[in-house]
């Protein structure tokens, strides 16, 4: 199994803990170099956030477990980059149309 370098997750979470606490908790995990948490939607009870995690060997199970312990739910894994280097998504003719 090759190592995961980047994960982009669509997460639904309660207002508490705050987004700062969630980002900080994920950032504290082993082999995580950085975290980006962007707020997309605020509901009465919940918040929809996009969490991007980068590192030399991101442990998805650990990230998911951390999010769930903080009361969140991973709705979908929107992007994964694995292997020796970061490979960005290429734009195709279909995307341009």
């Amino acid at each position: 199994m090759s190592q995961i370098k980047r994960l982009v997750l669509d997460v639904l979470k309660p207002h508490e803990p705050t987004n700062v606490e969630v980002a900080s908790a994920i950032g504290d995990l082993q082999d995580v170099d950085g975290v980006n948490l962007s707020l997309y939607e605020v509901d009465q009870q919940t918040e929809n956030v996009k969490i991007t995690v980068e590192g030399p060997n991101v442990n998805y199970d650990l990230v998911q477990q951390t999010i769930e312990n903080l009361g969140g739910v991973v709705h979908s894994v929107d992007e994964i980059i694995a292997g020796k280097k970061l490979v960005e998504e290429e734009e195709t003719l279909h995307d341009r149309g």
Binding site: L12, P14, G71
Partner: peptide
């Protein structure tokens, strides 16, 4: 319970419940 309904999951043994 209200938050659990919105999240479609139980919050037992989570940070939210302990807080």
């Amino acid at each position: 319970v209200k938050t659990e309904k919105s999240l479609l999951r139980k919050l037992n043994n989570t940070y939210v419940e302990s807080q």
